[in-house]
Design a protein around this nucleic acid. Structure first.
Length: 474
RNA sequence: CGGGACGUGGCGCAGUUUGGUAGCGCGCAGCGUUCGGGACGCUGAGGUCGUGGGUUCAAAUCCCGCCGUCCCGACCA
């Protein structure tokens, strides 16, 4: 093969990063911009990643005993108006339908920005007794928020997500469930499947979800040192229960308002995956997520090579690895390799005449670039072993990267300085007051989450000795 | 809405200062040579230069209006 130049410059460094991000999206064929500003078209390969996320998330959601249901896309405007903070929070970003069937509607309909209100309306009908609680619902849906500054996958005007909505008899139950979702669904998925380390904590009170009394969040560091909120779990108190009359009779025959929660994760996670794991050669997908975990490449076709490749495919498949054959031998090998690297497939297995001579194959890791020749007999087992190994090492790498880019700060100036390139970890009281908040906003830095010193989640921001993680964000 | 920039084949751009009738790279099609790390050569398809008006023998280029997009600020899964 003719010597080839590495064409595109993909540099996941500070200022170039958004450009690089767009390059990966385009070249790995994940998504395009949609026809309406701020919308996107997810291409098949990108959707494959989302489907895997859905599958893994859904399994965990069901393990937390929530059930899937579906509610309408269009919501009467009057529903949103019932919870005052909720309206205020969402009004600026609503898409409103004013006409239907060629006529102006008597009441405008809102395209759901989230479904607390419709679901609240139905919870009120479905809940009568404490025996009906907890009511644990989840919905997979699209929502629309008219964003001022959209960015493909990270903040699109329409996005796909899951939104959980639950009602409980007591505040303690609701709080425990919101935390359970954060740990057992979100953190478990993001850490163990996406291989992205997280900071879990509460949001400052001024940064809560509109209508919530407490917001729990998962925050991750991207490779440019910025933070991305990967998911949130909210305690809604009795705010929505009061607005929608979600009442139940307790064991003593007294009417009580339920305590509700809501929690969501979205296609933003695909963007997070790219930005947390991407490198100069494109995307790197952790094996636990990949819908194509290994690709067998026929370097040069021949009867012998093809049948060896076939056996290899079967062997790798038998080890429980999702494997794809690439026998497009009319396309130059370099091009094909680059394509799979851009797409981030964890392991590549090459087989050609050269391997056949010694009854070997070449196994290459996408994450490290490590390349080695191994005997055909052991190849399938090796590929299977690599799945677990790559998974662990990608998480360890991401964690090491985050720690190397996190600075302990004790003053506001140190926070601003550290957040220029990464995370600042600072005593919460240093950034808690209004002046500090204003200074952070000036520096385009935000408090991402608040934790206890031991990393656990505090009851509220008024506990002593809390720490805050501060960073720039998307 | 406040501040900045830009609209030229599918994508990325040059050309605009100093008007002369549109060009480059990538991609795409055909043929050939290649092909164990993004190949090369030749040939070819594809553009009313965002839009409306004006100046001029002549406008991508100069003038005026309009539309749109992007970046920075407020929003955010």
């Amino acid at each position: 093969m003719t010597a080839a130049k590495r064409a595109p410059v993909l540099t996941p460094q500070a200022e170039d990063f958004p450009r690089w991000y767009q390059d990966v999206l385009n070249k790995a064929e994940l998504a395009d911009n949609g026809p309406v500003r701020g919308t996107m078209v997810i291409r098949p390969y990108g959707y494959g990643l989302w489907e895997r996320m859905q599958t893994e998330m859904d399994r965990r959601i069901k393990r937390a005993e929530a059930e899937n249901a579906y509610f309408p896309l269009l919501i009467p405007q009057s529903y949103l108006i019932r919870e005052s903070e909720h309206v205020e929070g969402f009004s600026p970003e609503l898409a409103v339908v004013t006409h239907g069937g060629g006529k102006e509607l008597e009441e405008p309909l809102v395209v759901r920005p989230t479904s607390e209100t419709v679901i609240g309306e139905f919870m009120a009908k479905w809940i009568q007794s404490y025996r009906d609680l907890p009511l644990l619902l989840n919905q997979w849906a699209n929502v629309v928020r008219w964003e001022l500054r959209p960015r493909i996958f990270l903040r699109t005007s329409e996005f796909l997500w899951q939104e959980g909505h639950t009602a409980h008899a007591t505040q303690e139950d609701a709080a425990a469930y919101a935390a359970k979702i954060l740990h057992e669904v979100y953190a478990d998925f993001m850490v163990n499947v996406l291989a992205i380390p997280l900071h879990l904590g509460i949001k400052p009170s001024y940064d809560r979800f509109a209508g919530a009394i407490n917001t729990l969040a998962c925050e991750a560091m991207m490779r440019d040192g910025k933070a991305l909120q990967m998911g949130t779990s909210h305690e809604l108190g009795q705010n929505f229960a009061k607005a929608f009359d979600i009442l139940y009779l307790d064991g003593d025959n007294n009417q009580q308002h339920a305590w509700t929660t809501s929690w969501g994760t979205s296609t933003r996670m695909v963007g997070g995956l790219i930005m947390a794991h991407g490198d100069d050669n494109g995307l790197r997908i952790p094996p636990a997520l990949a819908h194509i975990q290994a690709v067998v490449m026929v370097v040069r076709g021949s009867g012998e090579v093809d049948s060896a490749a076939g056996k290899l495919m079967a062997g790798i498949g038998d080890h429980g690895v999702k494997v794809r054959l690439d026998d497009r031998t009319d396309t130059p090998l370099g091009r094909r390799i680059t394509d799979w690297e851009l797409k981030g497939v964890p392991v590549r297995v090459e087989i050609g005449p050269r391997e056949l001579e010694t009854n070997e194959v070449t196994v290459v890791r996408r994450d490290t670039g490590d390349k080695r020749r191994v005997g055909v007999e052991g190849a399938s087992a090796l590929v299977a072993e690599l799945m677990a190994q790559i998974q662990d090492e990608m998480l360890a790498d991401a964690l090491a990267f985050r720690e190397a880019n996190t600075t302990d700060a004790t003053t506001l100036d140190e926070v601003l300085d550290a957040a220029a390139t990464g995370f600042a970890k600072v005593p919460w009281e240093v950034v808690a007051d209004e002046d500090a908040k204003a200074a952070l906003i000036d520096g385009a830095v935000t408090v991402r989450c608040i934790q206890r010193a031991d990393g656990t989640i505090p009851e509220n921001e008024h506990e002593p000795d809390l720490v805050a993680y501060c960073a720039r964000s998307y």
